[in-house]
Simulated scan of single mutants.
Amino acid sequence: MIVTPYLKALPLLRIPFSVYLMPVYWFALSALPPPFSPGRAAAVFLVLHLLAYPASNGYNSWFDRDEGSIGGLERPPRVTPELWQLVVLFDVLAVLGALLVSLPFALLLTLYLLVSKAYSYDRIRLKKYPILSTLVVVVFQGAFTFLMTQVGVGADSAAILAPPNLALALVSSLFLSGSYPLTQVYQHQEDARRGDRTLSLLLGIRGTFVFAGAGLLLGAAVLGAVYWWRGELLFLAVFALATLPVVTLFGRWVWQVWRNAAAADFRRTMRMNQVSSLCLSAAFMLMLALRLWF
Rank of each mutant, 00 (worst) to 15 (best):
A220K: 02
A94L: 08
A28T: 06
R267M: 02
V257M: 03
S102G: 04
L288S: 10
I131H: 08
F140D: 09
V47Q: 05
P34C: 03
S69I: 08
P23N: 01
Q256R: 15
V138Q: 08
G251T: 04
Y20W: 13
F284G: 05
Y227D: 11
F27W: 13
P35W: 04
S69E: 15
V44Q: 05
L233K: 08
T208I: 09
L13H: 02
S157R: 15
T269A: 12
R193D: 11
A94H: 04
N57T: 06
L103E: 14
G154Y: 11
A162F: 11
Y25T: 10
S277H: 06
T110E: 01
R14M: 04
N273Y: 07
L286D: 02
R197C: 09
V210E: 07
S276H: 12
A221H: 07
L217I: 05
L170T: 09
Y186G: 01
A192T: 12
L114H: 03
G152Y: 09
Q150V: 11
G178V: 02
A167V: 08
P181G: 00
L108M: 14
A169N: 06
L83T: 06
L109N: 05
A220W: 07
L174H: 01
P104R: 12
G207C: 07
L233D: 08
A225R: 08
T134Q: 13
P81N: 05
R197K: 11
L199M: 05
I70K: 14
L218E: 01
W26K: 00
L218F: 09
T183M: 05
N57W: 07
Q184R: 02
W62P: 06
Y112M: 12
G204V: 10
F36A: 10
F209V: 07
F209G: 07
S277I: 00
V238A: 01
A261W: 07
V171S: 03
T248F: 12
A237M: 11
F105T: 00
A192K: 13
L10K: 03
Q274A: 12
I15F: 07
A52P: 10
T269N: 11
P35V: 02
Q141F: 15
G97R: 04
V226L: 10
S116G: 13
V79P: 06
Y186H: 13
V275I: 13
Q256I: 04
F45H: 02
L234K: 12
L147F: 11
V24F: 00
G195C: 06
L147I: 14
P16R: 04
R197Y: 11
A42S: 10
L46H: 04
A237Y: 09
A9W: 01
L236E: 10
L107A: 14
W255Q: 15
L48R: 03
P38S: 05
L176N: 13
R40V: 09
L288H: 09
S116I: 02
L48A: 10
Y119H: 00
L135D: 06
D196N: 15
D265E: 04
S102W: 02
Y20Q: 10
H188Q: 13
F250L: 08
V238W: 01
F140Y: 15
P245D: 04
W229R: 10
V88L: 15
V19F: 13
A42F: 14
L290I: 15
A159K: 12
V185Q: 04
V257H: 01
A106E: 02
G58I: 00
K8Y: 02
F239L: 13
I160H: 08
D156C: 08
L290E: 11
F146P: 09
L288G: 08
A261R: 15
T80K: 08
R125E: 11
T248R: 15
T149H: 04
